[in-house]
Design a protein around this nucleic acid. Structure first.
Lengths: 204, 204
DNA sequence: TAATTTTGTACGTTATAGCGCACAAACCAA
DNA sequence: TTGGTTTGTGCGCTATAACGTACAAAATTA
């Protein structure tokens, strides 16, 4: 079926193995010491380093916590800039079971930029009032084709093609298309940076 | 010893479960469909969504690949709040003195979100090669009307309406419109915040 | 050199991730 | 209603993650 599954699957393990090795040698920790700090057996740590084992996210969390760095730092190839990512709205457009609306995740959520970028197609007559998101979430609506209405702070605002609005999405809001043409818009949802935690000098 | 291992271990699984649920419902995919796209059995997908199972990084990689998004997007917390701002592209559209191109700053740079969002109108025959931006700057181009070409890593890529691309803008890049119709696109420029990414191997 | 300590790896067992299949509830057509 | 399809979940089995222990090689002593 999906030939992409096997292509780089080992690669992610090798990546992880390398990063674990680096993190450990950077601190001069032995496997024993690392086992104590992370709560993961040294046998398993050794296997992961050799690429012989693919840890679960639970144990990876233990490892990251033991090293006092973020989970993704073990997975994401941090070297500055990644390759270009091409997307096509037609290819990723799909209809959620719950809604008579087409959603195309142009750019799924990515921690580095902190937002996800969706293309929405609202059928004529479509209406949807959305629950508040988490605190700090900001939405941006830009109308591409035809017109639609956005519910903000209890009021409906009509937007035409070329109109845009930024609003706090941590309170009730909604969208509707009261025209007889399908409305096309972009919806960029920005989540506030979270990283508040970890990172402390190992002085304990 | 280290009792921190158990405190939030389940939490990372719940986080992951939620994001998987969201990603799936966002696309309107059933468990079956998701199993086909990712190459992971639907039984396992169901268990992960219910927090009953902590996948290995290998299977998490399969899932992320199936959803065409990054590994860390499933681990990095779906994070943790101004009046609404209405904008209209026609009203803010202007021609820079330097370029035969129309620029409409839909949303000027705002530290809170870390990006600026421009609407560009490229006249037929327009071409422009841009100097690299600061390190870590990421650009997003989404074509709204007609077609254009983007220069990335020394190669020109043709984009049609509905196509999108994300690329590192800290190296030479450019845009051109070799058609005979004006091309309309959005350009979102994201500037890295201080937070960057952590991982502090202070021991070096 | 022979002892001791410390390193990483190999072995055997248990826990569980992951699979295929089958089932029950919900949905749709007739 | 009936029958067919699609949804998600439960069950048994296999593969393997994860553990504790034991072992061999290198490092540090005397």
């Amino acid at each position: 079926m999906n030939d992409t599954s096997e292509k780089e699957a080992p690669d992610v393990n090798r990546q992880l193995a390398q990063r674990l090795r680096d993190a450990r040698s950077e601190r001069g920790w032995s496997l024993d010491r690392t086992a104590q700090e992370t709560g993961v057996s040294k046998a398993m740590l050794g296997q992961i380093e050799r690429g012989k084992s693919s840890p679960t996210v639970a144990t990876l969390w233990k490892i990251a916590t033991g090293f006092r760095c973020s989970l993704s730092s073990f997975l994401a190839p941090p070297p500055a800039s990644g390759p270009a990512i091409f997307r096509n709205a037609d290819a990723v457009r799909a209809r959620p079971a719950s809604d008579p609306m087409l959603v195309a995740p142009l750019f799924p959520f990515e921690p580095r930029v902190g937002f996800e970028w969706l293309e929405l197609t609202l059928a004529p007559g479509y209406t949807r009032e959305s629950e508040p998101h988490a605190p700090g979430v900001v939405e941006h609506i830009v109308v591409i084709e035809n017109s639609m209405e956005v519910l903000i702070e209890g009021e409906w605002h009509r937007l035409q093609a070329g109109d845009a609005v930024r609003f706090a999405a941590d309170r009730p809001h909604g969208y509707r298309n009261s025209s007889d043409e399908p409305a096309l818009c972009h919806n960029l949802i920005h989540y506030p940076a979270m990283h508040g935690q970890d990172i402390s000098p190992a002085g304990a």
